[in-house]
């Protein structure tokens, strides 16, 4: 169960609990293709991927990695409080990678009667290569 989270308990500079995913398997690309409907063979067919210039074969769907980041966020901030979530894809992810998702509270403010927290999230592989840099905003309740 996601713990209830109150505006008063969040401070600028707080870390989001880290989430570690992987090592990624090609089977997960197949599952994600079916779930999302993105059947680009770049993610599931090594021969195709090599033919379009990926020397080591298939790469993960960027949206799968964004899904990991979404898991990290809504494992901490209840989904119902999430207002905005955006990412920039900055690197390709190969099978076998282990992805760590970390985050930090950058700002908190009361805006139009809402308690907004603004956070940065980053997904990196085991070599510290950044795959995603993103941000999210959530509107949290008061403790009383």
């Amino acid at each position: 169960m996601t713990q209830e989270l109150f505006y008063e308990d969040i401070h600028v500079g707080d870390d989001m609990p880290e989430l570690v995913k992987g090592p990624l398997q090609k089977l997960q690309h197949v599952m994600y293709a079916g779930a999302s409907g993105d059947f680009n063979p770049l993610h599931t067919d090594d021969d195709f991927a090599r033919a379009v210039g990926m020397k080591n074969g298939v790469i993960a769907h960027g949206m799968l990695i964004m899904g990991f980041v979404g898991q990290a966020i809504t494992g901490w901030v209840p989904k119902k409080y999430l207002k905005k979530f955006g990412v920039r894809f900055s690197g390709m992810t190969k099978p076998g990678s282990t992805i760590s998702i970390t985050g930090k509270v950058l700002d908190k403010r009361v805006e139009n009667g809402e308690n907004i927290i603004f956070c940065e999230v980053v997904a990196r592989d085991e070599n510290e290569d950044v795959k995603i840099i993103g941000h999210f905003e959530a509107s949290l309740p008061n403790r009383d």
Binding site: T2, L64, G75
Partner: peptide, 30 residues
């Protein structure tokens, strides 16, 4: 949720979602 490997019960189980204040299993962020 299964494809992402997200075990959060709100996405998997209606009763768990209701217990956390949702009407049903909500769609995940992506």
């Amino acid at each position: 949720a299964k494809a992402i490997g997200d075990p959060n019960p709100i996405y998997l189980d209606k009763e768990a979602a209701i217990a956390e204040g949702y009407k049903d299993t909500p769609a995940p962020p992506t």
